[in-house]
Simulated assay, not measured.
Amino acid sequence: MFKQPEALNVERHASLGLADQPNYSHAAEEILTPVFSGEAWQVAREYTLVFPNEVGLPLAILGYQQGVNAYLGNNGSWWGRYVPAHIRRYPFIAAPQQTDSGQQQFTVMIDISAPQLLEDAGQPLFEEGQPSKLLKEVQRVLANLQTDTQRTQLLVKQIDEAGLLVKQNLHIKVKEGKDKGLQGFRVIDQAAFRQCDGEALAALNKTGALDLIQAHLCSLTNLQDGLLAKKAAGKLGQNGVLEGPATLDELFNEGDDDFTFDFDS
């Protein structure tokens, strides 16, 4: 997503501004995006949340066709109600640095190729050689994301060490064309989770790992009735609104659609 990252520098970028209107075309080919623990429940409302095969940030599924983000609308708009933080922070990202004293700091990086960055237009990044109000807010957001990144990685590590993650493939059965599949991630082993004793659950609850688990489990319902599934099945109305059942057959349908998302057994 970041094609030409470089460190933001007042000497070189004094005239840069950020476009007023958001545009998410930079995420057109993203079918997975990292998720931070602080946004897990917002993500879980409309995306499917999974875990990577190695310890790292959880992932939200944005598409089922390689290189096609199903949440991207016309002219760079976004179909979902909530845009994941990793998508929203573009064209900015933090590059961690360690000082001589051992303290963690970061450098603000920009994708210099981003169409959101304008010469002598938009909201300025610098004013009289100093960070503008906008850039200060960007720095604050990036600092919070850095902190949340470290916390989220620890939570995933705790869940992993508790033996609750299992590799899984996502199978997509389509009405017309060849069935598709996604792989390379893990989900909560619900049988193992149900066997957790009180001490194990208390440990997961104390750190917030239990909350992340619950958000993940809740998000799995989006495999059948979320925006991604409805859009792929042709049941998405104007402006990304999910259409309800149109007939009694659909109202009492038990999920036997021609188009389905499901995990391989």
Rank of each mutant, 00 (worst) to 15 (best):
D189Y: 04
V10W: 03
Q104V: 12
T48I: 13
A209Y: 05
L212T: 09
L117G: 08
P84Q: 01
Q139M: 15
D225S: 08
L201F: 11
P91M: 07
E176S: 12
P245T: 06
K167P: 15
E29K: 08
E254F: 10
F193M: 11
A44S: 14
L125D: 00
G80Q: 05
A143I: 03
D258L: 10
G102Q: 00
R88Q: 15
K133L: 14
F92W: 09
D257Y: 09
K230L: 14
Q123F: 07
W79N: 06
L248I: 14
N169A: 13
A229N: 02
L236C: 11
V166Q: 09
G67A: 06
A229G: 06
A191R: 01
L59T: 03
E243L: 15
F252N: 01
E127C: 02
N144T: 12
A114H: 02
F263H: 00
G76C: 10
D189C: 06
G76Q: 06
Q42F: 08
N239C: 04
R194C: 08
G80M: 05
R88M: 13
V35A: 10
E119L: 08
V43A: 09
P22M: 07
L223M: 13
A143H: 10
E161W: 01
L62V: 14
Q195D: 14
L145Y: 12
Y64Q: 03
V241F: 06
L212A: 12
E39M: 08
L223G: 12
C218A: 14
K133S: 12
F259M: 11
I213W: 02
A233H: 01
L57N: 07
P5Y: 07
A94L: 11
T107I: 14
L204H: 07
A44H: 04
D249R: 00
F261Q: 04
V141K: 00
V83N: 01
Q104N: 06
G177E: 11
P96I: 12
P52I: 10
A94F: 13
T207E: 10
L72P: 00
Q146E: 15
H171E: 10
A229D: 07
E250H: 04
Q105A: 06
S113W: 02
E30V: 05
T147F: 08
T147K: 06
S219W: 06
Q66D: 12
L49G: 05
G76E: 07
P58S: 08
E176A: 11
V138N: 04
D111W: 07
C218H: 10
P131R: 00
G244M: 09
A121N: 09
V35I: 15
G244S: 12
A114C: 12
A143P: 04
N23R: 00
L248S: 04
A143F: 10
Q168P: 10
G67I: 08
E6A: 04
A200V: 14
A7Y: 02
L59C: 06
A215R: 00
S25F: 03
L49D: 09
Q214R: 04
L72G: 00
N23H: 02
Q130C: 09
L236K: 00
Q214C: 10
D264Q: 04
Y64F: 15
A60F: 13
L227V: 15
Q98L: 15
A85S: 14
L170M: 13
T207Y: 05
